[in-house]
Amino acid sequence: MMKTQAVVDSKHANTKRAIGTVLVTGFFAILSAIIAFPLLAGLLASFHPGRELLQNGLSLNLNFDTMSLNNYIYLLSGNADSQKYFMWYGNSLELTIITVILTLLICYFVAYGMTMYRFKLGKILFFLVIATMCVPFEILLLPLYNEVTELGIINTIWGVMLPGLCSASTIFFFRQYLIGMPKELLEAARIDGCTEYGISVRIMMPLAKPAFASMAILCAMGSWNNMLWPMMVFRDADKFTLQIGLNTLLTPYGNDYDVLIAGSMFGILPIMVIFLLFQKYLIEGMTAGAVKG
């Protein structure tokens, strides 16, 4: 009697659990479908003539008969529009790669100096790092624009990069990572005759690889998608990054919408690939500040 009751109970619990699973999983399936919708509509639109986008706006267009690869063929054809597009693409790639390398190296060494040595300035500087994070960058927009003009680096890649190389959030993340490292390693290396700089490069840097991976992805995303500051610094059309360039195609006349919609989808591609490959590192880097507060 007792036994059958238990079986009935567990069966009951199983059905309850199964219903719960279907409900929750179904909920996320619907939510994901809604969230994927705009990009899906954009992707489908990229297979239709840009003219339609101007006349009809964007909607989920499932008319497969009129779909073609024409926009992408045009984009890759090597004509004037295509050359312009890939010039922007190349500019963005160049800017992103140089920014990521320099930002990571500089921020790593700064964070290393702040955490691995006991000196008063280190603590004060860390406080200043936090302080700069508490002021929105946009406040400095105009004076920085003036400054960059005075320094003669307006309209150059340096004008875009230099003000942001010592990124407070990147320093903060590296510091959080390095602070957990055993300091005995440093002593051991010193006894072996390693210089201070040698230790930071040869001992600690390899240990900080996961931190580098996280920050590289976040930094690359930020740089690839950055718009406001590069738009102010770059004046010549041949220096534009992809985001600025795409924005110039968004005219009310819509004669470039073929390139715009196909180029937008093609422009998400590098970030999407990096995301799918390194998702784990990205999430680690992003959420590092949220738990420790």
């Binding site: 969230i35 705009p38 954009g42 706006g57 964007l58 690839w224 985001q243 970030i271």
Partner: peptide, 28 residues
């Protein structure tokens, strides 16, 4: 899937929403 929108730049996502909210009869 829920993270993917954050990967798209403001330019691209803004463009998509602008066209979905277009005044044309065929907009979403």
């Amino acid at each position: 899937i829920m993270y993917i929108p954050a990967l798209t730049s403001v330019v691209i996502s803004g463009m998509l929403f602008r066209m979905m909210f277009s005044e044309a009869d065929g907009s979403q």
